[in-house]
Design a protein around this nucleic acid. Structure first.
Lengths: 210, 210
DNA sequence: ACTTTTTATTGAACATCGTTCAGAATTATA
DNA sequence: TATAATTCTGAACGATGTTCAATAAAAAGT
């Protein structure tokens, strides 16, 4: 019934987010209730609503947090071949989903806002991830094909995401872990080959230097 | 407080499912509560639990129902070119997601069963859809490459699904409806081209007949 | 130093949810 | 007709998201 100075407002919002994260990691999104978070941080329910608009708001912040981690886990080592680097990226995406299953589920299990749109800073995160791929695709397209390149980045992202999602939620029937890896490699391999083929034949770039 | 003979058990299960479907169509999955369904069919809450184990069970049945409709909307006209037929399929998939947004969302918004596995008859539905694509892919692979063909079917399915999902839930940033169409076509086009290229060069089948 | 204002924190309260189950009423069986 | 099996109800339980008057501490004003 009183004011405390155990934490600043910022500390408290961070503390709440960490608690939420812990709960999801341990027990899944369904266990993420306002009361559970309050209990975990040693404050009362009302305090949560003093920091976040509602539970969905908290979930979106958690999702953004997860996207940050995903980004950090994916920033690419600048390698040689486009295809190999892309497959490396995809592999790390899959590794992330496996190492953080419950957290990763948060990313698409929270469309429950009904008609409520996601905030812009959330899209910024997604855009950043997309940028990662777009940059890798540069060698595949001339500098005057930015639109196609952006589209390819989105297609690849969505493709890998789709595979990971259907696999993780068991909606793919008879798919093992290695099966998922094979699928992702198959996607990247054939798609990249198709793009290369479309834009001027199989032999390319290497020949220009001599 | 009494027994009624307004409907047989089968009629009642069907009635419940239809009511559930109507509620989701009109107000989304979040409005699908046991009490709402009971109200709609003119029975009490308990009756729902006499027909379905729990709400998740009802949702899974609804999802299977939607999968049936999706299947019906996608059975392909046997056309000529593989790529064109595939794109036609993908287009109809997208059309379905747009025409039945809220229903379609049910398909992947109900992974909340936690560790509860989905029933086999649910996978049968998915398998049937996959079979649709697999069959279309036959001309791309020799009859002795069933595994690769099955994998390609899954990859394409997951890809289209991923695109549709990210687009529908607004998790793709700056994507219009035409953008989605373009993405799906891009995916199918380049992927198929890549597969063709991989399995024996650009010129194929047509030359064998003469 | 004091008063006043602003801010943080609580927890009881409300409506709603999924789910259970004893009992009442009807149909089926003996 | 008597007994068993079934269907249906709705009150009840615990838990949820969310609100808000009341409270007390901190900050600002004098």
């Amino acid at each position: 019934m009183a004011r405390r100075s155990d934490h600043s407002r910022e500390e408290l919002t961070q503390l709440t987010l960490s608690a939420a994260r812990g709960i999801v990691e341990r027990e899944g999104l369904r266990a993420l209730t306002a009361r559970a978070v309050a209990r975990e941080i040693g404050y009362s329910v009302g305090t949560i609503y003093n920091l976040y608009d509602n539970i969905d708001d908290l979930i979106v912040h958690l999702a953004a947090n997860v996207l940050d981690d995903l980004h950090a886990a994916m920033v690419p080592l600048p390698g040689g071949d486009v295809e190999d680097t892309l497959i490396g990226l995809a592999r790390r995406y899959l590794a992330f989903t496996r190492a953080n299953q419950r957290l990763w589920n948060v990313l698409f299990e929270h469309s429950r806002d009904a008609d409520g749109e996601l905030p812009e800073w959330y899209f910024d995160r997604i855009g950043a991830l997309m940028g990662l791929i777009e940059e890798l695709l540069c060698p595949l397209y001339g500098p005057d094909h930015a639109i196609e390149r952006a589209r390819s980045a989105r297609v690849l992202w969505a493709g890998v995401h789709g595979i990971a999602m259907l696999a993780a939620t068991g909606r793919l029937a008879n798919i093992t872990a290695e099966g998922v890896d094979a699928m992702v490699e198959d996607l990247v391999h054939h798609y990249v080959k198709g793009v290369r083929e479309a834009s001027g034949g199989a032999v390319r770039v290497e020949n220009f230097s001599t």
